[in-house]
Amino acid sequence: MKRIAEILSWLALAVTLAPACLFFAGKLDLVQTQAWMLGGTALWFIVTPFWMEHKAS
């Protein structure tokens, strides 16, 4: 389960960053880019707490 969550987290970061790169390359417009980034953000915060060590420091 943790392993799946970790993979999904990395996917979420990719979904957050890749649209910006695709926008740079002219493959996405700004509205699509921002929508994908929001999706990636949501996915990151949903799955990451399942695996990442998040002790207060």
Binding site: A20, M37, A56
Partner: peptide, 29 residues
């Protein structure tokens, strides 16, 4: 503090996106 630890990798990625999107909008292709 725990939330911050989780948020940091995502924040770094969004900061990179700020730069990449900004550069394209400034005309860099």
């Amino acid at each position: 503090a725990e939330f911050a630890n989780i948020a940091v990798p995502w924040m770094v990625v969004v900061f990179i996106a700020f730069g990449v999107i900004g550069l394209r909008q400034l005309g860099l292709t």
